[in-house]
Design a binder for these strands. Structure first.
Lengths: 96, 96
DNA sequence: TTAAAGTACTTTGAATTTCAAAGTATAATT
DNA sequence: AATTATACTTTGAAATTCAAAGTACTTTAA
């Protein structure tokens, strides 16, 4: 068992780390909130959220606000558990 | 300025994060030490150390131990500074 | 003494991932 | 009615990641 065993590769990328951090402290965030908070491009937000969706760490809820489409991103129970594990592993790795 | 602005992409990957963590607390580590501590393949250690060398966060020292080649990996001053910045940014991001 | 196996890496290139530009569909503005 | 804006999604080229294979010895065994 190596020292990086509990570092989750789903969170290896800073944008995905950012998305999860946001969704840990906010019940949800929409596309533009993620985009603005992370300073990422549209395509980037789309692909990194999709990657987190694929492993079921986040889920989406699509609705209309007025006449406009709006997508809410929320962390799943699994996502929150795995993210916490990741943070613990990070702290163990770097933090003495 | 986004919330992931000070997250350094050189440390996005868990193996590179591991290498740096090891080199922050040990004056140096050799190839096999990195390989064993990280549970990575030879090719992986080679390419991730090379990536960190390229940005001058680590440097290598090659010598012979007896008749065998041996490579020491050491964090540079720059590498230590940048890694500390990264950790601080991580803590700000995830830490409440 | 020479053949086979081991050591310490490095190289390779296929597979996967990342990226932002372009595309889609509809809404708002002029 | 035509242009611009909004909220994403799709695309595929570029960059990165991966482990298998290669290199250059050294050690062990026959």
């Amino acid at each position: 068992m190596s020292i990086i065993n509990n570092i989750n590769k789903a969170f290896d990328h800073r944008i995905r780390l950012g998305i999860m951090s946001i969704l840990m402290v906010n019940d949800y965030a929409d596309f533009n909130m993620l985009k603005e908070l992370l300073g990422a491009t549209d395509g980037n937000i789309a692909s990194h959220t999709k990657a987190l969706e694929k492993v079921e760490y986040i889920k989406i809820e699509k609705q209309f606000i007025g006449r406009k489409p709006n997508t809410k991103y929320l962390a799943t129970k699994l996502g929150k558990i795995e993210f916490k594990k990741h943070i613990d592993a990070l702290e163990k790795l770097i933090g003495k």
